[in-house]
Design a protein around this nucleic acid. Sequence first.
DNA 1: AGGGTTGGGAGAGCGGTGCTCTCAGTTCGG
DNA 2: CCGAACTGAGAGCACCGCTCTCCCAACCCT
Lengths: 250, 250
Amino acid sequence: MLSNLCSALASCFTVGMTSTDPAPGLRARVRHEMRQEIVASARRHLAEEGPAGLSLRAIAREVGMVSSAVYRYVPSREALLTELIIDSYNALADAVEAAEAVVDRQGFGDRYRAVGRSTRLWAVAEPQQWALIYGSPVPGYVAPPDTIGPAIRVPLTLAAILSDASEAGVAPARGHVPAELHDALELREVIADHVQVSDDLLIRGMMSWTYILGSVSSQLFGHRHRVVSESAAEAVYEIELDRMVELVGF
Amino acid sequence: MLSNLCSALASCFTVGMTSTDPAPGLRARVRHEMRQEIVASARRHLAEEGPAGLSLRAIAREVGMVSSAVYRYVPSREALLTELIIDSYNALADAVEAAEAVVDRQGFGDRYRAVGRSTRLWAVAEPQQWALIYGSPVPGYVAPPDTIGPAIRVPLTLAAILSDASEAGVAPARGHVPAELHDALELREVIADHVQVSDDLLIRGMMSWTYILGSVSSQLFGHRHRVVSESAAEAVYEIELDRMVELVGF
DNA sequence: AGGGTTGGGAGAGCGGTGCTCTCAGTTCGG
DNA sequence: CCGAACTGAGAGCACCGCTCTCCCAACCCT
C-alpha cells in the first residue's frame, strides 16, 4: 500500500499527466487544485528568491498549511525543484521554438539568430529560472531522467537547422575532425538521421549552442563586469550572434 | 572601539595582508594560525560539499571549537565565501598564466589554446571552485569590489594576446562593428592602450573567453549529456579551441 | 609586579530549514 | 453503513546562521 501511495504520488507528480479520470471525484479534484496552488507558490518564490531560497515551509505558510501537510502533495523539496526545472526547460523551449518557427526556413543564419535572441530574451525575463537550469547544479542533486527530454528540446531545434542546412547544401564541412570522434557525437543518435550532417558541422552547431549558454550566463551572472557596458549588452550580443553564424558557416 | 575591532578584523581578513608586525606577539600568531586553519577547513568543505554545503558549524566542529567562536575570526559565512572566491579566481589565474607564459610569444593561437586548456584542466580538478566563481551566483550575494581584480586576471591575459597579435599585424578586423559600440567595450579601459586593438578583434577576443566559460561549464554541469560522450570530452574540446582560434583570426 | 584592558572560547538562545511520526477528523468506496 | 483511505495539525529531530552574555586568560601599561 505504501508503494501504491508512492506510485499514485509519482503519477500525480508527473508533469503533463492530465489523466482525465472518468469520475474525478471531489476529493481528487480539490487535491489537484491544492497541488497546483503549491507549485504556483513555489514558482513565485523561485522567481523572487532564487533556487536556493525555495523553502517548503515558506510555501506552506503562503498556502495556509502547516509545513508537514505539504508533504502530502510533494515528496520532497528536491522533487519540487525537479518539477520547476522541467517547467523551466519547457518554457524556454516553447519560447525558442515559437521564435524560430516564424523565420524563413531557408534563412539558416536567421533561424539561428532567432534561437539566440529568444533564448536571451527569456533568460533576461526569467533570470532565476535560467539560473535553475543552467547555473551550477545543486551539490548532491542528480537530474532525474524526466528532465533530459525537455532539456534537449532547444539543442534539437538547433540540430534541425543544421540538418536543413546540410540538406540544402549550405555549410559544408570546412575543418578536420578525427574519425574516432564520430561515435562520440551522441547528439547524432537523437536527431533524425535521414539527413547526413557532417561531424564538423555537428561540432560547430554544438558550439553555437554552447556559445549562447556561455554568453547569456556571462551576462546574467555578472561576468561581463568591466568588460562590456550593461546598456550595450544586447547590441553586442547581436554582433556575437553574427560571428557565430560566421563560425557555423551558414 | 567597536569600529576598531571591525577594522582590525577587516584588515586581518584581507587576503595577502602579510603585515609582518615587528613584534608579532604570541597571541597574534596563534590567532593567525587559527584563522588559517579555519580557512583551510572551509576550503576542504567547499571541495567536498560545494558552495551551498559550506557550513560554519561544520567548520567549527572540525577545528574543535563551538560555532560562536569562529565568529571571532570570520565575520560571516558570506565573507568566508568571498575569501574562497578570491582564492579561486587567483588559483585559476595562476594556472592559466603559468601555462600561457611558456608558449612562444608569436604563436597567438597556441597561446589562446594554452589558456583554454589550462582553464579546463583547472576546472576539472576543482569543479566546486569553478562552480563557486562561474556558477549561478548565490541569490542576495553581491560580489565585493575585492573580487573584481582577481576575476579579471584571465581576461587580461587574453587581452594581452589580442594586443600582441594586433601589434604583430596578425588578426586584422574582419567584420563590421557599429561605431556607437566602441565606448561600450569597457575592457579597453583596463588594458594598456599603447597598442590599438580593433573593436572587432576585442569582441572576438571576448567571445573566445565567453566560449571557454560556456564550454567548461557545459561539461562540468552536465549539459553535454546525450550530446557528446564523456570520454571524448577533452578531444572535442581541442576541436572547439581550434574553431575558436579560427573565429578570432589568429 | 600589579591591575585594568582586551581578546577569545563556551554556552544559551532565536529564528529558520527539511523531514518524520503520530493523532484525529474527514471523505470515500464497497 | 462501516471500515479503509486520505488529509491536516502538531510535536519533534537535526541541522543552519548569527547574537548575546559570561568568564578566564593573555596582554599592556604604570
